[in-house]
């Protein structure tokens, strides 16, 4: 299951760090952030609850960059 989300992050290094953190979240098979397109492509692990997982992603990313925003 692949999904692309519009995101808001305004520093490239933060985007890198968010990507690393997002990949550690349970339920995420792989997450990539395209800073230039302001997009996050997420591949969910089988059986994962998208909404819950994305909330968790948002939380860990906000820890890295308080201004991080995902359009869910």
């Amino acid at each position: 299951m692949m999904k692309t989300y519009q995101i808001e992050v305004d520093c490239a290094n933060c985007a890198n760090l968010c990507e690393i953190e997002a990949n550690k979240v349970e339920g995420i098979a792989s997450a990539t952030i395209n800073f230039w397109a302001q997009k996050m492509t997420v591949e969910f692990a089988p059986g994962a609850d998208e909404k819950k997982v994305m909330k968790a992603v948002m939380k860990v990313c906000r820890k890295v960059e308080p201004d991080f925003e995902i359009e869910l």
């Binding site: 692309t4 890198n16 990539t32 395209n34 800073f35 230039w36 397109a37 997009k39 492509t41």
Partner: peptide
Amino acid sequence: VENAGSRKSKSEKFIS
């Protein structure tokens, strides 16, 4: 084109 950024090059990986 939009997904192109998801496949990172060696240089990008090196930098991060």
